[in-house]
Amino acid sequence: MTIILKEVLESEKPILRNLYSLYLHELSNFTMNLNLGEDGAFHYEELDDFWRVDGLSPYFITLNEKTIGFILLLERPFLKKSNDYGINDFFILNQYKGKGLAVQAARKIFEEKPGQYFIIQVVENKRAVAFWKKVYTGLNIETNERQDLIDKELCLIQTFKV
């Protein structure tokens, strides 16, 4: 089972919007900053910016030509400081979790985009924290980690170079 990362085209925005609603629903377990819209879906208000702002780069995670998740990669010129990249959002559909596919996707993005990274997780999201620690260990990545408040949420921030 081989993962492929595919840049999301603007014409595929409705698919990404639907996946973001699922992702935000999952995140709502760990934060009070997310609210259900009146239409019964979670909305990522900045979604249109992905095709208007240089350095916001969404990728579908695909398996056998099927979309199973997405990654939102932040890069230059959007990022201005010491990091070349940031993984802002990372999502795999539940039925594909626990099969090593998310680790494959992380490895693939690091291979395709080497440089200085940062990744942020809400401390309460124990599954995400454990996932990223597993990725770092499995890929022999040494990280610097700190905690900080972001949007009133306690977060872990890891920085590293690949």
Rank of each mutant, 00 (worst) to 15 (best):
L36Y: 13
H43D: 02
V53L: 08
L101Y: 13
I68T: 11
P58D: 00
I61D: 05
A41Y: 13
L79Q: 09
E38Q: 12
V123C: 01
Y96P: 00
F91D: 05
E38G: 10
K81T: 12
F50T: 02
L63P: 05
A106V: 06
G40L: 08
F110I: 05
Y96R: 10
R107V: 01
F50V: 08
F50A: 07
T62C: 04
Y96M: 05
N83Y: 09
L47P: 08
K99N: 15
H43T: 05
I68H: 15
L47D: 08
L72H: 10
N94M: 14
K97S: 09
V123Y: 10
V122S: 02
N83P: 02
I61Q: 11
L34M: 02
Y117C: 03
T62A: 02
F91L: 05
L73N: 04
Q104R: 09
S57R: 12
D89G: 04
G98L: 05
D49N: 13
E75S: 06
Q104N: 04
K66G: 02
G55P: 00
W51C: 03
E46H: 15
G37Q: 04
E38Y: 08
L93P: 00
K113I: 11
E112P: 02
K80R: 15
Q121W: 05
E45H: 10
L36M: 03
Q104T: 01
G115S: 02
N33S: 07
I71C: 09
G55C: 01
I119F: 14
E124H: 12
R107H: 05
F118S: 03
I109T: 10
L79K: 13
A102K: 06
L79C: 10
Y85P: 08
I92W: 03
S82K: 14
F60D: 03
L47Q: 04
G98W: 06
L101R: 03
I61A: 00
D39A: 09
G40A: 01
F70G: 02
R76A: 01
K108M: 09
L36V: 06
K108I: 10
N88Q: 12
Q104S: 05
E75C: 05
R52W: 06
A105Q: 02
K113H: 15
P114T: 05
K113G: 13
L63H: 12
A102Q: 02
E65L: 13
E45F: 10
F60E: 06
Q116F: 12
Y96Q: 07
L34Q: 01
V122H: 08
F110V: 07
K66L: 08
L36S: 13
I92A: 00
A41H: 11
V103N: 10
T62Q: 08
A41V: 05
A105R: 03
E38F: 08
F42A: 02
L47C: 00
N35Q: 08
M32I: 09
K66A: 05
T67G: 00
D39E: 12
L56P: 06
K66M: 00
M32C: 06
E124V: 14
L63D: 08
E124W: 09
D48K: 15
F42L: 04
D54H: 07
E75L: 09
E46W: 13
V53A: 04
Y44N: 14
F90W: 15
E112A: 10
R76E: 08
V103E: 07
